[in-house]
Amino acid sequence: MSAVLNKKYQYLLYLPLLLVFGFTVVYPLIYSLYISFFSYDIIRPDMTSWVGLGNYLAALSDPVVIRATINTIIFILISVVLQMAVGIALALLVHKEFNKTNILEALLLFPAFLTPIAAGFMWRWLYNPDFGLINYLLRLVGLAGLNWVGQSSTAMLSIIIVEVWRLFSFVFLLTMAGMRALPTEAFEAALVDGANYWQTLRYVTFPYLKPVLLAVLTFRIIDGFKAFAVFYAITGGGPGISTEILSLQIFKQGLRYFDIGKSAATTWLFLILLSLVAMVLIKLKFKEDTY
């Protein structure tokens, strides 16, 4: 019997993929590593000169970059924890009744696929200190309105709320999918053994859900590093540098101040941070798999 794929030509089927990756992913990344060691002059590329680790030292000694690094970590940590908490809690609350409600699922998914820049502006409008709906609602119940995104104490919190609003439904829907796949026998056994709701949750539901939750957690954290447009639409990094994150910094250094070399160096520092986090997550998953 002949093979499903022709041995001679099977490589041709994924060759275009490798070519696209080579030209648009690998080459640009190597190129950015290369220019991170140069002082790159955007107007006169021929004046480019080797500076060694100079760009990295400049980035690491820049207080704005340091603040942006801390903010990136804080932002991802808090927004992912809240997304997971809200998503899982909601799944636990409604999973018994929630079935075959496709339109509802689609509606929940809608914010996640909303143009981030549009979602950002929607919330900036809600947060508006004078005409915003949120301050109006606060005034209705007798509270003082806040200058949500206009003061550094609440700006980051305001953006985190937007991200949780946008993305918790991912956690919710995937947790629901995981719950549908749970073996019913385990729950029956728990019932027979007289386990109460919390014991069942702790000793039956969560252990079974753990691989799914870990996968969701990994994707939420990795996606957190992709945040840009919502920040750009709502605060652009301000007030001051209170919501400055690394992706904003890379963009601003490169395309606003045209410090290409430093921006490339910051890109690689960002990639190193991302790889460290990814390595921890993979290790967690590996530990899970060996059980």
């Binding site: 648009t24 992913v25 640009p28 990344l29 190129y31 950015s32 220019i35 790159y40 955007i42 990795i222 590093f225 992709k226 840009f228 690394l246 992706s247 890379i250 963009f251 490169g254 395309l255 290409i260 921006s263 490339a264 890109t267 960002f270 990639l271 991302l274 990814a278």
Partner: peptide, 13 residues
């Protein structure tokens, strides 16, 4: 997993 921002500088140039 790569965030698009890591390509901004090399693509731009």
């Amino acid at each position: 997993m790569f965030p698009p921002v890591i390509f901004v500088i090399p693509y731009f140039i």
